[in-house]
Simulated scan of single mutants.
Amino acid sequence: MTENNKTQLRVGRLTKAHGLKGAIKLELFTDDPERRFVPGAVFTLQVPTSSPWHGKTLELTELRWYNSHPVGFFRGVADRDAAEGLVKAILWIDLDESETSSEEDAWYDHQLVGLKVVRDGVEVGTVRLVEHLPAQDLLLVKTPAGEVMVPFVKAIVPSVDLAAGIVTVTPPAGLFEELPDDADEPPAAEPAE
């Protein structure tokens, strides 16, 4: 979502009530929690329209770590019942689109969506979405033949050129095309002399 040079950045998901005082365990979608999850940070909530939290924001009062899991405390969430009402909510923040990541080889989703995907100098599709999974991120690439899930790893996506609007890929055989049926069969052994 973009408005007045601002976009929404998904930074986390509320996963489970923690304790009796309204704390909620978080799944983080940001590499920079020290910057995104500070006291006073305000998050737009993505919840079902039937939720009493629909259309509201949530303000973080404290972030703690328990057994290496982040746990958030939020203004207006005073007990376990209130916390359970927020489970599965997605947290979004407003982000200025001109903001760039300070990390090398790190991009925001909105910077990648819409870029041309090029393989061997030929355009094969367009980045439609970035999926963040526990093992690795995936680029969902729209191609004429359908959607292709491309692991967003250096070996397969060696370069991203935002200025040129190009993501270069070097995928393994079969990722963007069907392999012939005989490709899975081992080569025939030559007869012994």
Rank of each mutant, 00 (worst) to 15 (best):
89 A>R: 01
123 E>P: 01
79 D>T: 02
1 M>N: 11
88 K>G: 00
55 G>D: 09
131 E>T: 05
60 L>T: 04
127 V>L: 04
114 G>Q: 05
45 L>G: 12
71 V>G: 06
154 K>V: 05
48 P>S: 14
178 E>N: 10
191 P>I: 14
79 D>W: 06
172 P>M: 09
12 G>L: 04
170 T>F: 02
85 G>H: 06
45 L>W: 08
178 E>W: 03
130 V>E: 03
129 L>G: 00
43 F>G: 01
121 G>P: 13
49 T>N: 12
143 T>S: 10
166 I>A: 05
181 D>Q: 08
84 E>P: 00
183 A>F: 14
117 V>Y: 09
110 H>P: 07
96 D>C: 06
85 G>C: 01
136 Q>W: 09
9 L>F: 11
60 L>N: 04
32 D>V: 09
187 P>C: 04
84 E>D: 12
191 P>Q: 14
173 A>P: 02
17 A>V: 10
162 L>I: 11
30 T>E: 02
172 P>R: 10
75 R>M: 03
94 D>K: 10
20 L>K: 12
28 L>Q: 05
103 E>Q: 13
115 L>H: 07
43 F>E: 00
44 T>C: 00
175 L>R: 06
192 A>E: 15
22 G>Q: 02
140 L>Y: 02
148 V>N: 02
53 W>Y: 14
130 V>S: 05
134 P>E: 10
180 P>Q: 08
102 S>A: 12
75 R>I: 01
52 P>N: 11
172 P>T: 09
36 R>G: 00
169 V>H: 05
152 F>R: 03
141 V>I: 14
106 A>V: 09
108 Y>L: 04
176 F>K: 02
100 T>G: 06
168 T>K: 12
176 F>L: 07
193 E>M: 11
165 G>P: 08
172 P>V: 09
142 K>S: 13
144 P>S: 09
137 D>C: 06
192 A>L: 15
193 E>L: 15
14 L>A: 07
33 P>R: 13
6 K>H: 10
105 D>Q: 06
77 V>E: 01
113 V>P: 10
109 D>P: 10
76 G>P: 10
177 E>L: 04
176 F>T: 06
171 P>N: 04
167 V>G: 01
